[in-house]
Design a protein around this nucleic acid. Structure first.
Length: 497
RNA sequence: GGCAUCUUGGCCGAGUGGCUAGGCAGAGGUCUGCAAAACCUUCUACAGCGGUUCGAAUCCGCUAGAUGCCUCCA
């Protein structure tokens, strides 16, 4: 039987601002759409956090036995640079700067995006559609909105009539804004705009002659407005109504608000049952964002080649760090935080890898068997409660504690129970959290291992002869190279730092 | 200026009315030739003030501070 039948998942719905029991529209199937990146520059770590949150959600939904169609778009038709009419396409601006074709920019940063996500062990989405591949769908959608009376044409551009829409619908239903407040707080610039009202947003923009990314349409040679692609693609692949729509918190308004309005205007229905918003990543107390320049690219953090962190951190450590906080909380990326996570992560992985070396007993001790049963319950309970990965991790460390007791021999475990424990931990650590076993040594492993084994042997001989000057010299100098010897009961092992 | 969200121990970070979160650091211990590593045990909380309640970190109000959105952003 599928796990979702016995596990009632709750999801915090931004729409109701409350946790709700999750029931998909079609039993056993889940449609999930997540707003992907605009590929005009390298993806930064804040982007990675959002997508990682939904990667975890995708993994858990699949684990529960749902058949999930996960759609994450690539925005390769540039958004407007700003809301003024003189806005410029982001992609084409970048292309002009670098003197390359727009699609070359798109290709470069799409590849970069995929490479980064692969480093962090992301599962690929079921469909990864591009905005430029769906121009026809977007044009059709605009026509429907115009036909339904919610779009108007000015100088070859098409705008969404927010005021008209709000007469019969609630513009602000998601972001809890009131149109009148928006009117009062709009920084009205000047009368240059073609728009009837500043709150209106573009569905189609006529391109200036020098604009290089443009397509023919009934209204002008131009390009689609920036909220439109998600509506067009989510409708195409998930239907007019689907289960989950995710994205960064910063997209809630106006982007997601506009998506709802477009869908209602075109199809008469609200598109999404559960809106999920992943919170922002800060770095040293300030939000990571392209516009403020407070950003770090993943490879800079991985290699340690930056002026903000004391060393490089592995993708697993970064993933573990992110999973230690709730996807709905602001997370502050700091050196101290990463160092703490690194130690915790290593402790967890040491315990897991020692599972295969545990001694098997005939019977499982009472304490061990009770712990295993309660761990399983608590793992699911945590994840069923709006994907509470920090609580899950807290309970994983209860598992670590059990493993250490088994290792020490204070508790015993049977082969069957050991296999159960192993598979339980593997499921949650690797399949659901998406962590991987770290291979600390890669190339030249055999040679290095052989060399160190020899040194360990020499050191142990020296120790046996009470030549501590020599044994300490070997130990200390290896440490200086970043090779740490660890004396345990069953001999000496080493790790690379 | 408007609208939201947040403020937990040395640091990070869960938790929504009574029951130990967890990680890191610190302290004590086991192990060790000494260490390191590992493991065991363990201390320090709920921004301030007022209210509701038998009982509040958790609900309400006020004050202070932080952040986000209101313009492209995950």
């Amino acid at each position: 039987m599928e796990l979702y039948k016995t596990n009632q998942l709750s999801i915090y719905n931004s729409l109701s601002k409350d946790k709700e029991k999750f029931t998909p529209i079609h039993a056993g199937n889940v449609g999930m759409y997540v707003c992907g990146p605009t590929v005009y520059s390298n993806v930064h770590l804040g982007n990675v956090r959002t997508f990682m949150s939904f990667d975890m959600v995708f993994r858990y939904l699949k684990h529960l036995g749902f058949k999930v169609r996960y759609v994450r778009n690539i925005t390769d038709a540039g958004h407007l640079e700003n809301d003024a009419d003189v806005g410029e396409d982001k992609i084409s601006k970048k292309a002009r700067l670098e003197e390359i074709e727009p699609m070359e920019v798109v290709q470069r940063y799409t590849v970069d995006f995929h490479n980064i996500l692969n480093l962090f062990n992301f599962l690929p989405p079921s469909i990864e559609p591009t905005a430029t591949g769906h121009i026809i769908e977007q044009i059709e959608l605009i026509q429907t909105i115009i036909d339904n009376g919610f779009g108007y044409i000015v100088n070859g551009s098409v705008y969404f009539d927010v005021h008209k829409y709000n007469e019969t619908n609630d513009y602000g239903i998601l972001s809890k804004r009131k149109l009148e407040d928006l009117i009062h707080n709009t920084r009205a610039l000047d009368g240059q705009s073609d728009k009837k009202n500043p709150q209106d947003f573009a569905l189609w923009k006529r391109a200036e002659p020098q604009h290089i990314m443009k397509w023919p349409s009934p209204w002008s040679d131009g390009f689609p407005g920036w909220h439109l692609e998600c509506t067009a693609m989510s409708t195409k692949y998930l239907g007019e109504q689907f289960d989950i729509h995710g994205g960064g918190m910063d997209l809630k308004f106006p982007h997601h608000e506009c998506e709802i309005a477009q869908n209602v205007a075109a199809k008469g229905t609200a598109p999404v049952n559960y809106w999920m918003h992943a919170n922002m990543l800060e770095m040293n107390g300030q939000r990571m964002s392209k516009s403020t320049g407070n950003i770090i690219n993943p490879d800079q953090l991985l290699t340690g080649e930056n002026d903000k962190f004391s060393k490089g951190f592995s993708p697993n450590v970064i993933r573990f760090f992110m999973m230690q906080s709730s996807y709905r909380s602001i997370l502050d990326l700091t050196d101290a935080g990463l160092l703490a996570s690194e130690k915790g992560f290593n402790r967890l992985m040491d315990a897991v890898s020692s599972l295969s070396k545990l001694e098997i007993s005939k019977a499982t001790s009472k304490m061990a068997s009770e712990t295993i049963a309660s761990l399983k319950l608590k793992f699911y309970e945590a994840m069923n409660d709006d994907f509470n990965t920090p609580i899950l991790i807290a309970h994983l460390f209860d598992g670590v504690s059990l493993i250490n007791k088994l290792k020490a021999g204070t508790e015993t475990i049977s082969e069957t129970d050991l296999n159960n424990l192993k598979s339980l931990l593997h499921t949650f650590i690797f399949d659901i959290l998406g962590l991987t076993t770290i291979s600390e040594v890669n190339e030249g492993t055999d040679k290095l291992e052989g060399t160190i084994s020899l040194l360990i042997e020499l050191r142990n001989q020296a120790r046996a002869n009470k030549d501590f000057a020599m044994s300490d010299k070997i130990r200390d100098e290896l440490l200086a190279f970043g090779i740490q010897l660890k004396d345990g009961k069953d001999g000496t092992t080493f790790s690379l730092s």
